[in-house]
Amino acid sequence: MPPADAPADPGACPASRAGAGTEDTLDLQLTDELLALLAEEAPVPHGGAQETPAPSCGPQDSVLLDRPAEWKPVTTPAGVFLLVPVRPERDLALISRWMNDPAVAAFWELAGAEAVTARHLMPQLDGDGRSVPCLGVLAGVPMSYWEIYRADLDPLARHCRVRPHDTGIHLLIGDVGRRGRGIGTTLLRAVSDLVLDNRPRCTRVVAEPDIRNTPSVSAFLSAGFRYSAEVRLPDKRAALMIRDRAHRDQL
Rank of each mutant, 00 (worst) to 15 (best):
P68V: 01
S62K: 09
V74R: 02
Q60L: 04
S56G: 13
P59I: 15
Q60P: 14
E70S: 07
T75P: 05
P43G: 11
W71I: 00
T52S: 10
H46P: 09
T52A: 03
G79S: 11
P77G: 14
S62H: 12
V80E: 13
A78M: 01
P59C: 08
P55R: 13
K72Y: 13
E51I: 15
G79W: 15
V74N: 12
V74D: 01
K72D: 02
P45V: 15
H46E: 10
D61I: 01
Q60H: 06
A49R: 11
P53V: 01
G47S: 15
D66E: 12
S56F: 15
T76M: 00
P68Y: 03
A49P: 07
S56V: 07
G48H: 01
T52H: 08
G48T: 04
T52D: 09
G79Y: 09
V74F: 02
G48L: 04
V44W: 06
V44E: 05
G48R: 02
L64C: 15
P53F: 01
S62G: 04
T52W: 12
W71M: 03
V80Y: 03
P77N: 12
G58I: 05
P77Y: 07
A78I: 00
D61E: 11
K72P: 11
P43C: 04
V80T: 14
A78C: 05
P43T: 05
P73S: 04
Q60V: 03
P73V: 09
P59A: 06
P77F: 04
E70L: 04
A49D: 12
P68H: 12
A49Q: 15
P77L: 08
W71H: 00
P68L: 15
T75V: 02
D66Y: 05
G47P: 04
E70P: 06
K72C: 11
A54V: 10
E51S: 09
T76S: 04
T75E: 02
T75N: 06
T76Q: 08
D61F: 13
V63H: 08
R67G: 05
T76V: 02
A69F: 05
S56W: 08
P59K: 06
R67E: 10
R67Y: 13
D61S: 10
V74I: 03
P59L: 08
A78E: 00
P43H: 15
A69Q: 10
V63T: 12
P59H: 14
Q50H: 11
P59F: 15
T76E: 03
S62R: 02
L64P: 03
V63S: 00
P53Y: 03
V44I: 13
G47E: 09
E70A: 11
Q60G: 10
P77I: 02
L64H: 05
P68M: 13
P45S: 14
P43E: 15
W71Y: 00
T76W: 09
P45N: 10
S62M: 01
S62N: 14
L65G: 00
V63Q: 08
T76K: 03
